[in-house]
Amino acid sequence: MKYICTAILLFTFAGFFPLASADEDEFPFALQINGRQASMFLYRYNLGLLGSMAKGSTPYDAQIATEAAHNLLSVANMKNSTMWPAGSDIDAPGLANRTEAKANIWANFEDMGNKHQALTENLTKMSLVAGDGVEAIRANIGSVAKACKACHEQYRLEDED
């Protein structure tokens, strides 16, 4: 019994220790970097709902598709400029494994804004048609992907996970 209790205790606390000792916020610009990564996660999550229907790995559901498309548009409409402070790029001290944002973003901020605008327009179209059927998603998801890629091609460093 004693051993079982010890085992349970160890097991339980083992789960907490990494959290307790995590240095998740102990790096430069942690708040802003975590913030922008959270918005990327929301894109990915909602694109996953739509995309898996387009891909054919989950059945089409008009309500889920509509919600996901609206969520994507909402994320795109958030004003996140404070999450992109200069000096929070992958080559900045202490950020090598914390961000994938390339330093060239800050020399091309206007271009990144234009690319974001294109994404917003594509997501607006998607939000209007996502409830119309899987073919409507298939017809529009390519241009959404292209808008995401436009930024990832130039401004994100592909690095080891």
């Binding site: 999550y45 996953g48 995309g51 891909k55 292209k146 990832h152 994100r156 460093l157 592909e158």
Partner: peptide, 16 residues
């Protein structure tokens, strides 16, 4: 399409 299984997209020189 350029989507990875988690619906992140391709980036960098692999886009082309």
């Amino acid at each position: 399409m350029g989507f990875k299984p988690d619906f992140d997209t391709v980036g960098g020189s692999m886009v082309e």
